[in-house]
């Protein structure tokens, strides 16, 4: 056995080792997802229902208003909600409800014993799951396109920004919900608070309706929260209309929220883990 006993196992650089860990965790996550193929399909069917309802409602309203609502036609609504579906799926992260389960069931101890910050497990595991989701989304998006005829003509720059923005959105949502989930270390039943958060997100993110259709005050208010950078921005980055300046501003705002989220998680984590009582295990 040649493993060094001082804990610095191997000669891999820290970055390389972290990259290797992420790839292995993502791979494990993909294998796990394929263990339950039927569940993955049912999950996708569930994910289709919400945007299709929004799409049908808004397309109907647009038609009844002479084919357009606030600049949105049935074709642009179709583009918005088909892209919405991908963004929503990439946005799925470890939720605070999961934290309640972790703390109550005592399942967190095994992660705390590992020499890596536990947030990396969640980031890597959920990122791995996205690859499966994207594969499953493609035929669904194709079918919906044939039915609803989306009006989608992105530029190369928009495609590039969209690719960065969906992962930026993933990081923002992961960090914010991680920080929120850490409240569970103080009190294990905080579902009501989480529900309030998700309601605010629904209204101020562009998830329920495109931000352009919201009242002016709501649009202004949305700038003070991370929500719009996790839904409206990545969707609009691909579907438009959006200027080059707005694309770059959007990425900058995402970078800002990633920074804020990282600092908040680091600060709350230190205090939270000191309170960990390792319930039941």
């Amino acid at each position: 056995m040649t493993v060094s006993p001082n804990g610095s196992l191997g000669a891999e650089s820290k970055t390389h080792a972290m990259g290797s860990m992420y790839l292995t965790l993502m791979r494990t996550s993909i294998i796990s997802q394929f263990q339950y193929r039927a569940a993955a399909y049912f999950y996708m069917i569930g994910m289709v229902v919400e945007p299709v309802i929004y799409l049908i409602v808004w397309s109907t309203i647009a038609r009844s208003h002479g084919g357009e609502v606030a600049g949105f036609t049935p074709g642009t609504f179709a583009a918005y909600y088909i892209v919405w579906m991908l963004v929503r799926n990439v946005n799925i992260v470890f939720t605070p409800f999961g934290w309640e389960w972790r703390i109550k069931e005592g399942n967190f101890a095994s992660q705390l014993l590992k020499p890596v910050h536990p947030i990396h497990y969640d980031l890597a595991e959920f990122a791995g799951g996205k690859l499966v989701v994207i594969i499953l989304w493609l035929p669904i998006a194709l079918a919906l396109s044939l039915i609803f005829h989306p009006s989608l003509h992105p530029s190369l720059l928009q495609c590039g920004v969209f690719f960065l923005a969906i992962w930026g959105a993933y990081l923002i949502r992961s960090l914010v919900l991680w920080a929120l989930g850490l409240i569970t270390f103080w009190t294990t039943r905080v579902s009501a608070l989480y529900e309030a958060y998700f309601l605010a997100e629904l209204l101020l993110s562009g998830r329920l309706v495109p931000m352009q259709l919201m009242p002016r005050w709501a649009q202004t208010l949305s700038w003070a929260f991370p929500f719009r950078w996790t839904f409206a921005f990545p969707i609009t980055a691909l579907t438009g209309p959006i200027s080059e300046r707005e694309l770059l501003e959007g990425l900058a705002m995402q970078a800002l929220w990633i920074g804020v989220g990282t600092i908040v998680v680091m600060l709350v984590w230190r205090r939270a883990v000191a309170r960990f009582s390792s319930v039941g295990g």
Binding site: V3, A11, A17, T24, T28, I31, G106, K114, P115
Partner: peptide, 27 residues
């Protein structure tokens, strides 16, 4: 307490530990 991945064969969990603990592959 279970510390392994519940749905996967143990070999996959072992591989995960290899990456987490940065164990050289040969070792």
């Amino acid at each position: 307490r279970n510390q392994l991945q519940w749905d996967l064969p143990a070999l996959d969990s072992f591989e995960l530990n290899r990456a987490i603990y940065r164990i050289p592959r040969a070792d």
